[in-house]
């Protein structure tokens, strides 16, 4: 049940293979993974935030910021690649830190915090570049998103790190926090710190996804548009509950792959661009409804009064 999303993914891949057997070949499959890589990485980051009971709406604009900043600073200069990469990572971490501190310590709902961050980021970056992205990426920068081997390796590394993190002490306490904040706090968990770190992870994931998308899709002001919703959708498709405490990061990344497979399939069958959104919307709501309808019955909590039988 936990990994039901992979059954869906397999079915979608099979359906793709019927029309286009290339995807069954290693090269074809890897190309598919490369295309999905940024979303998979964003979903992995978003997973940590959602499982702790919060949202991160700022990742889309953070991706745009990363790409635009990279292009302006590198401006075709190969030598600048590595310092800029370090700076981009630092930027992602910083944005996550601010999101986390405002949400966990100042207690602003994360929806608002990250919405504000979204406005601030997109405003600030274009303020800095004067309205339109300028400059160019270097070849050695573009390789991460464009070269299949690099893209797949990075995705695998991020995936492995995410899995290890969810199994580590931090991940377990974070999930427990999302499930029952009070019980976690009364067990000595530093709840605020755990949440802040979740936002930092999400920021880091957005930085990595931005670096890859810059290589893959090139520099534009729209590169990150809507990615926050795609990432949240992917995570939810993977069976991770909004509100926290439930779901696995592997399934969240599976949700991202499934979303990408769905796009591919819809393209293949000529429902290009346009109606694919419609189909996507219906599937997402249906998937969540299917999950929700059975949940409340399993999850029986006693009425308030019962705990105080006198």
């Amino acid at each position: 049940m936990k990994y039901a999303i992979f059954v869906v993914l397999a079915l979608l891949l099979a359906a793709i293979a019927v029309a286009n057997p290339f995807i069954l070949e290693p090269a074809g499959f890897l190309a598919f993974v490369k295309r999905a890589a940024p979303l998979v990485i964003l979903a992995a980051g978003q997973y940590f935030v959602i499982v702790s009971g919060e949202f991160d709406l700022s990742v889309g604009s953070l991706v745009t910021v990363e790409v635009v900043v990279a292009a302006r600073l590198i401006d075709g200069n190969e030598a600048a690649t590595w310092p800029v990469l370090a700076l981009l990572i630092a930027l992602g971490l910083l944005v996550g830190l601010v999101n986390g501190v405002v949400t966990a310590l100042l207690r602003v709902p994360s929806f608002i915090t990250t919405l504000g961050m979204m406005l601030i980021l997109s405003g600030a970056v274009f303020l800095w570049t004067g309205g339109a992205p300028r400059g160019a990426l270097s070849q050695s920068f573009r390789v991460f998103g464009r070269d299949t081997l690099w893209a797949v390796l990075i995705t695998l590394a991020v995936g492995a790190a995410a899995v290890l993190l969810t199994r580590a002490t931090y991940g377990r306490t974070l999930i427990a926090t999302g499930d029952n904040e009070r019980a976690a706090a009364l067990s000595g968990v530093r709840v605020a710190r755990a949440r802040i770190l979740a936002f930092v992870i999400s920021g880091l994931a957005a930085a990595i996804a931005g670096i890859m998308l810059g290589g893959f899709a090139g520099v534009s002001a729209q590169v990150g548009q809507g990615l926050e919703f795609s990432a949240i959708t992917a995570v939810v498709l993977g069976g991770v509950a909004l509100g926290g405490g439930r779901g696995s990061v592997v399934a969240a990344m599976g949700g991202a792959l499934t979303l990408e497979a769905m796009f591919t399939l819809l393209n293949l069958y000529g429902i290009s661009g346009a109606l694919e959104y419609t189909v996507q919307g219906v599937i997402i709501v249906a998937a969540v409804a299917a999950g929700a309808v059975q949940l409340p019955r399993l999850f029986i909590t006693p009425r308030k009064g019962d705990a105080h039988a006198s």
Partner: peptide
């Protein structure tokens, strides 16, 4: 109805609706 009867989180339900309408708009 989707939010109350199918018990889908409002965020997802209305995001889904967004996609459905967006698809129709882009298509037409």
């Amino acid at each position: 109805v989707v939010i109350t009867k199918l018990k889908v989180h409002a965020f997802i339900a209305t995001l889904g609706m967004t996609l459905v309408i967006k698809g129709v708009l882009d298509h037409l």
